[in-house]
Amino acid sequence: MRIHGFHHLYQFRLKQSTKPFIARGAQITRCMYCRVAESLCLCAHQPDINTRVAAMLIVSENEVFKPSNTGRLIADTIKDTSVFQWHRTEPCADMLAQLADEKYAPVLVFPATSVEEKAKVVTASSFVADDKIPLLVFIDGSWREARRIYRKSAYLQSLPMMSITPDTVSDYIMRKSENEQYLATAEVASLILQEIGEPQAANALHYWFNAFKETYLMTKSRGVADDSRPQLSLYLQWKKRFTSIEAHRT
């Protein structure tokens, strides 16, 4: 299993905490990496693919502690993912440096709702340049938190935007959103990856998200769980096909 930036931020925040973060299901003994019950741990199945894109997660105050978080699934899938804690008055210098780095083409993945925001929306072809690495920037938090972070972060408001308007609402039922039309962070990332020409990464994240959602709900369930884990089976079938195709290419 690959340890990435989200795991490091989680451990850092744990060391800083003066009191435990009490989430639903706090009595469950969870894996510290995939955050489902240890008996259902998914870590051995983490995606292992290469992409031509990078990602950045800007995480709201307590999002890193929430077992239902899906931003970590992006870091599971896109190896070049940096993860930063959001601070209103003292943005991380490393984060600002990466956004300004000439080797990247940063774009904020965020639902544009106002006229001003819609004017910043770009298409994939307009920002994906051969000589630059597309850097997909996600605000990882609830819709209310993400809006607040965007309003209070001038460095985000200066970025071009990609805005997803899905045909169907989210089926992410682990944590109810204040606005049901918005997708989970991992769902949005999967759609964006498809749009910018990364279909294998998009598929990996789609199947991985469904496997995580299924396992997370099994962790929460007080009834009889479906031990067959069909979504995990679908993910593993996809992973086997992908590995076979890659082996033939080499």
Rank of each mutant, 00 (worst) to 15 (best):
T89S: 13
L159D: 03
V107D: 07
M1H: 04
V53L: 01
Y104F: 15
S114R: 02
T219Y: 08
I173C: 07
L136R: 01
A54I: 07
H7L: 02
H206N: 11
G197M: 05
T29D: 15
E90I: 11
T185I: 06
A211N: 05
R2T: 12
Q85N: 10
R72F: 11
R24L: 08
R2K: 13
F209T: 03
P134H: 06
Q200I: 12
I22C: 00
L183G: 12
S170H: 03
A225F: 10
S233L: 14
A211T: 04
R13T: 14
S17P: 03
I78D: 05
K213I: 09
L96T: 11
Q11K: 08
R249W: 07
T29W: 15
E214L: 01
A186R: 12
A154V: 14
V107C: 09
T250E: 15
A146P: 08
Q237R: 04
P67Y: 09
V121C: 13
R249T: 10
Q181E: 07
P134W: 02
H4Y: 07
F21P: 13
V169W: 12
E116V: 12
N179R: 13
P199D: 03
F212K: 02
S170I: 01
L183A: 06
F6G: 01
I58G: 00
T77V: 01
A201S: 06
L232P: 02
D131K: 14
R35K: 12
A124V: 06
V107N: 06
M32D: 14
F212Y: 09
I192C: 14
M56P: 00
A204W: 09
K176Y: 03
Q237P: 07
R249D: 08
V83C: 11
A247H: 09
M218G: 05
E102W: 12
I192E: 08
L99F: 07
A55H: 03
H8A: 04
R249I: 14
A26Y: 08
D76T: 06
D171E: 05
M56K: 06
N210M: 05
R175S: 01
A225L: 13
R88D: 15
S142Y: 01
S39L: 06
S228E: 08
R24E: 12
T70N: 00
T77C: 06
A26H: 09
D80A: 12
Y150P: 06
D171T: 08
N62Y: 09
N203C: 03
L57H: 00
W86K: 04
P230F: 04
A100V: 05
P230A: 01
